[in-house]
Design a protein around this nucleic acid. Structure first.
Lengths: 148, 148
DNA sequence: AAATAATACTTGCATTTTGCAAATAATATC
DNA sequence: GATATTATTTGCAAAATGCAAGTATTATTT
């Protein structure tokens, strides 16, 4: 039996670094955590603070402050939900969308470069595997509370 | 063409969370970063500070301080190398080995649980894929300076 | 062999990030 | 109408971060 953790530890460490690299766009400097937030906001439609914080497995208070700085640098907007004014809807500003998309593109470029070292067959297999993994982790009981 | 980043973002986020879970052993509380350090020290033979810091993509000064606390809680040892007394050899104490092994086992258990949601065929494919990915990333020019 | 450079690591800040407990503000329930 | 619940924010106090500057040791120069 192989050491599963070894494999995954190395992989995730690499992706962590990869993420670290990609976080400065134009004039704006973005931390890794902030890039994760932008990533979520790009994909979701006006989610609440709770929702995003939970998805990212972040303490809500930390998240609240991160959002504050993202608003300050004008990447994120926070508008109260009319039906329930306790909750705020989060969204990206134009600039925020631009930055998020830019990071996205850069990451995809990195990933494509990584895949360029593989055959087409391997590439397909790897992608299928990552999908499988994501599904399996979603089903798992022990880990991965954030469900998306 | 699919959105590669989407797939990998979700996957690495999950593993990040997974890692976060597994960092308390017996009486000792371990941060995620510290668990990564222990992980490295368990696998290497008396590496230097520089080496480990570089592998983990950490600033050496931050690393230095993390090692200090790991020494204080008696998980890590730091002995000067006789041939060159500028460099220190890092190693785990008995307790350190125990903690590192414990975390390792726990992570493997989690991973096995994840894999239990797959067929044998899928499992093999996924493992092969992760290996492939690690190799491909090692070859890549843009990312992943830490080479292990 | 003395002076200079380079290397491995540590410390001094000053900033940022974190999370718990407590506060606020709005809605739900009794 | 009083009380509980929920969503978010603030007050700390602790931890983590990274740059610049420091120490100590080895290498290189002249």
């Amino acid at each position: 039996m192989e050491n599963l953790r070894e494999l995954f530890q190395v992989m995730t460490r690499r992706f962590g670094l990869l993420d670290k690299n990609c976080c400065q766009v134009g004039g704006t400097e973005i931390s890794l955590v902030q890039s994760h937030i932008l990533y979520e906001l790009l994909r979701r439609d006006k989610p609440s603070m709770q929702q995003v914080a939970e998805t990212l497995g972040m303490d809500i208070t930390t998240f609240s402050r991160q959002i504050q700085t993202l608003i300050k640098i004008e990447l994120v907007l926070k508008t109260p939900l009319p039906e329930d004014r306790r909750v705020y809807q989060l969204s990206l500003t134009t600039q925020g969308k631009y930055v998020a998309a830019k990071i996205d593109a850069e990451m995809n470029q990195y990933l494509n470069e990584v895949f360029s070292n593989m055959s087409e067959f391997e590439r397909d297999m790897v992608i299928k595997s990552v999908k499988l993994l994501n599904e399996a982790m979603a089903k798992s009981t022990v880990c991965c509370k954030p469900l998306l």
